[in-house]
């Protein structure tokens, strides 16, 4: 084999190994780290898998935040304002923009009992910002609200 072909062969082998290695690693990593998102109705009706890391989101129900007096444990209820709600348990510091009525996302595992054990609570850093995951829900609620209250001007 002349040197030119030889170096090209090395190159081809190297690229092949690199690409196949990456693809394999990609598949494995994807398998373990995809977190599906579920709105409250799917958490309640059993669509969401139990004991797997998932994301769920909705609005924090008014008056539902309950702190443990001695530790950083906290419980609150997430609702879609359309009848579906579930309880989230979390230990740690809640983000600045966490408050009742606010749209938030939690990441963690759903227990058999229907309680959501959150490892992370995400609220965004802008008052007016709505996470895309919650956008549909907000629009739906708005649409229902609009249908109920007939506007006197129209």
């Amino acid at each position: 084999m002349n040197p030119k072909r030889k170096s090209r062969l090395y190159l081809a082998v190297f690229l092949l190994v690199a690409v196949s290695g990456t693809t394999a690693a990609l598949m494995v990593a994807m398998e373990q780290n995809i977190n599906m998102f579920y709105p409250p109705d799917q958490v309640v009706d059993g669509t969401a898998p139990v004991e797997r890391t998932i994301r769920a989101g909705g609005m924090v129900k008014d008056g539902s935040v309950n702190r443990d007096p001695d530790s950083l444990a906290v419980e609150f209820t997430i609702t879609d304002h359309m009848g579906s709600e579930f309880v989230v348990a979390f230990t740690g510091i809640l983000p600045d923009l966490f408050r009742e009525g606010q749209g938030i996302i939690v990441q963690g595992e759903l227990a058999e009992s229907g309680r959501f054990q959150a490892k992370e609570v995400l609220a965004k850093h802008d008052e007016n910002y709505m996470p895309p995951e919650l956008m549909d829900m907000a629009q739906e609620i708005e649409a229902q609200g609009a249908a109920k209250s007939s506007d006197p001007r129209t």
Partner: peptide, 28 residues
């Protein structure tokens, strides 16, 4: 790029929403 854009592609294909966790990136 895969970790950043695949949630968009996934949503377009299936309508479900996913997020890719930090461990995915660290693994690589």
């Amino acid at each position: 790029m895969w970790g950043t854009l695949s949630p968009i592609g996934y949503e377009a294909l299936t309508g479900d929403r996913i997020s890719i966790g930090v461990p995915f990136f660290n693994t690589f």
